[in-house]
C-alpha cells in the first residue's frame, strides 16, 4: 500500500474544443500532506479538481488512487473509493433539513441506499452520527431548518460538514472560505486544521488567501493556463520570481 502515493495524476489533460483547460498536469500527493493549488482565475484549478473527482472525463492522462487507475470510473464510484469533495459554489440539497443533508452522506457511507422497506427514521445510529458531525461544525442548533433558509456562512459550514461525514482519504476543498464573513472563516480553517492532524488524510486545497495557505500548506502547486508552472515547498514557491510577479505579488503584500 505504502509504496504508492495516495493520489497521482499523470499527464492529466482536458480539452474543450481548441481550449486546453488542464494541460498535462503530473503530480503525486503523499498520504498526510496538504497541498494548496493556486493560480489566477481561469487557470484550471477547479477543472483539475473536476478531473480528479470525476465530474469531467479526461481527454488524456490518468488519475490513480492508491496506485489504481480510476480514470474511467464515475463520480459515485470514486467517492466510494475515498475521494471526497467540497464544492466552490454551495451545492447542497436545498429543500431538505440540515440534518437530513448530513444523514444522507452517513447513509451513503453505511451503504444503506437500497434499503427499501425499513423506516429511515428508525436508523438512529445514522442520525446520531449526523448529529455528531453537525456539532463539530457548530450547526447543531439549526439541524431542523431547511438548508434553503440557511445563511451563506452556515451553508459553507454544511458543505464542509458533508465532507467530514463522508470521511474520505482524499479531501478536496475548493475555496472553502469564499464569500464568508471574516469572523466565520476561522471556524472553517480550524476544521481543516483538525482534519490535517489526522495522518491518514490527504488534503487538496484551492485557496486565494495567502495567509491561509502559509499557515496550512505543506506544498504549493501553481497552475497557469492549465499548466503546472511551479510546484514545491511553500516558502520557495512563494519566493520564486515568476510567482511573485505574476500571481502573488499583491496578495503576498497583503498578508
Amino acid at each position: 500500500m505504502s509504496e504508492h502515493p495516495v493520489l497521482e495524476t499523470r499527464d492529466l489533460t482536458i480539452r474543450f474544443g481548441g481550449h486546453v483547460a488542464v494541460d498535462a498536469v503530473s503530480a503525486t500527493f503523499a498520504r498526510g500532506s496538504l497541498t494548496a493549488i493556486v493560480g489566477p482565475n481561469g487557470a484550471g484549478k477547479t477543472t483539475y479538481f473536476n478531473l480528479i473527482s470525476g465530474q469531467l472525463p479526461a481527454t488524456r492522462g490518468q488519475v490513480l488512487l492508491n496506485g489504481e487507475d480510476i480514470t474511467r470510473l464515475g463520480v459515485a464510484e470514486r467517492t466510494r473509493r475515498g475521494i471526497g469533495r467540497a464544492f466552490q459554489l454551495t451545492n447542497l440539497f436545498p429543500n431538505l433539513t440540515v440534518r437530513e443533508n448530513v444523514r444522507l452522506v452517513v447513509q451513503a457511507k453505511a451503504n444503506r441506499g437500497f434499503d427499501l422497506f425499513s423506516m429511515a427514521a428508525r436508523h438512529t445510529e445514522l442520525i446520531e452520527k449526523a448529529d455528531h458531525v453537525l456539532a463539530q461544525v457548530q450547526l447543531d442548533d439549526v439541524a431542523d431548518q431547511k438548508v434553503a433558509f440557511l445563511s451563506h456562512g452556515n451553508q459553507r459550514k454544511l458543505e464542509v460538514a458533508l465532507l467530514i461525514a463522508l470521511d474520505p482519504d482524499v479531501l478536496m476543498f475548493d475555496e472553502p472560505t469564499a464569500g464568508m464573513s471574516v469572523d466565520e472563516v476561522p471556524v472553517i480553517l480550524d476544521l481543516i486544521t483538525a482534519m490535517k492532524a489526522d495522518p491518514g488524510r490527504t488534503i487538496l486545497l484551492v485557496e486565494h488567501k495567502m495567509d491561509v495557505i502559509r499557515s496550512l500548506a505543506d506544498r504549493i502547486m501553481v497552475l497557469h493556463n492549465g499548466q503546472l508552472v511551479a510546484d514545491g515547498d511553500p516558502a520557495e514557491v512563494i519566493a520564486s520570481p515568476i510567482v511573485q510577479q505574476a500571481y502573488l505579488g499583491v496578495e503576498a503584500e497583503d498578508a
Partner: peptide, 28 residues
C-alpha cells in the same frame, strides 16, 4: 413505506440535487 425508507430519502436527494447525490456516492 418505500418513500420513508433510506431508499426513499435517496430519491429525494436525487430530486433535490442529482449532481451532489452522485458526489456523495449515490449512483443517480
Amino acid at each position: 413505506r418505500m418513500v420513508n425508507s433510506p431508499f426513499g430519502r435517496v430519491l429525494q436527494a436525487v430530486r433535490e440535487n442529482a449532481f451532489r447525490a452522485e458526489a456523495i456516492g449515490y449512483r443517480v
